[in-house]
Simulated assay, not measured.
Amino acid sequence: MDPLEDVLALIGVQSSVSAGLVAGGDWAMTFPPPVGVKFVAVRAGSCHLAVQGSTQRHVLAAGDCCLLTRRARFTLASDLSLPTADARTAFAKARSASPGDTARGHTSGSDRGADGGAPADGLARTGTGEEVFILGGSFDFGERAHALLLDALPPVIVVPAASPAARALDWALAQIEHEVRTQPLGAGLVAEHLATVMLVHVLRLHLTQDASDGGALPGLLAGLADPVVATALRALHAHPARAWTVAALAASVGVSRSTLAARFSRALGHGPLEYLTQWRIALAAQQLRAGNRTLASIATAVGYGSESALSTAFKRVLGTSPRAYLALTTG
């Protein structure tokens, strides 16, 4: 079993790719807080990035890519001291523009719409030139995403163009750019799938970096970076209904109980049985939403001997009973 793949499937990653952004000259654009995780990839030129609530500033050059993992406004600009335009206005114009009869892509001023706004290529524009081209999109997740994955990520993850990981990302980003610029049939669907590929590459990179520098925040990725904890996580994900004890799990990994408990706590911030409870409840919540199993069968499938045992654990983790949870999520 692949715990990262399990979690991404469980939390329901939905990717979306926005219109490309063409910019030049003096420009600054502020974006609203993303619902999930935002990605920004600079394909040509360079820009500055500032995220609300952080004093850190980033310079993104051609080939750089970053993930923004918090719900906070952010600004992209040639100069962060400039007055900012609202990104929503520019991207609304791009969405309303229909493809033109001429070749799409970086168009000149003569290709702009009759109202002087967005050109018919569907790209958003700001500033006075065209030397900067930026791809963007977002990843929306299910309600358990923060506890299972996002809380363990830093607010900004930057993948520099010079890094080995950027070369792996470049293929996916080049294909996304092609879909955004040329808009062939099915472009949106293809770009969304490619964006998910890009997300997995960035998470792999972050996992590898954390393993090498020891700077991971507690969470799933930190656990996967520890070979002992990763082996234990694979066992828990493969058999969540098993009556696990710390001793039995440690024996399956080939370490002592105290070693497993210490490494699990250091990597994830809590012990293996606490993680197992969270994972079982996440699985139970998913099966409840699917609506094709009884509560008793769900309890058995995730390792609880009765409905009442599942209900007790469910309420402890999510703060509500399974039936109340189902009523809330199904509206």
Rank of each mutant, 00 (worst) to 15 (best):
D226G: 08
S297M: 06
H193W: 01
L67W: 02
D6K: 05
L283N: 03
A243Q: 15
L189P: 01
L203P: 02
L203W: 04
T231Q: 12
D170N: 13
H237W: 11
V156M: 05
P34W: 14
P32M: 00
L268K: 08
S138D: 07
H58W: 15
F39T: 01
S256N: 10
W27P: 08
A118K: 01
N292K: 15
W27G: 02
A9Y: 00
L60V: 06
F74V: 15
L283I: 07
T300H: 10
W171K: 13
V197F: 15
V13M: 13
Q14E: 15
M29T: 13
L283C: 09
T102Q: 15
T75M: 10
L4K: 07
R71S: 10
S252A: 15
G24E: 11
D170L: 13
A262H: 06
D79S: 14
G12Y: 06
A23P: 15
F74E: 08
G45I: 07
S308W: 11
V190G: 02
A61C: 10
L205C: 08
V158M: 06
V13A: 12
L123F: 10
L203Y: 08
T55N: 11
L288D: 00
G331I: 09
V228T: 13
A241C: 08
A166W: 01
T245Q: 00
G116T: 01
T330P: 07
L220F: 04
L80Q: 00
D79M: 12
A118P: 02
A251N: 14
G100M: 11
S98E: 12
I176Q: 00
Q52E: 13
V255I: 14
L326G: 00
Q287P: 01
L135G: 06
L148N: 02
Q286F: 04
I11Y: 00
A87S: 11
A97C: 03
F31C: 11
A267V: 04
S81H: 15
A124C: 03
L4D: 06
E130M: 13
T312H: 06
G215Y: 03
F264V: 04
D121F: 02
R323D: 08
E5N: 14
F39S: 12
Q14Y: 03
G24H: 07
L149S: 05
Q278L: 02
T300S: 14
V202D: 02
E307V: 14
L283F: 07
A235Q: 09
T208L: 11
Y325D: 02
P34T: 00
G45A: 11
I298L: 04
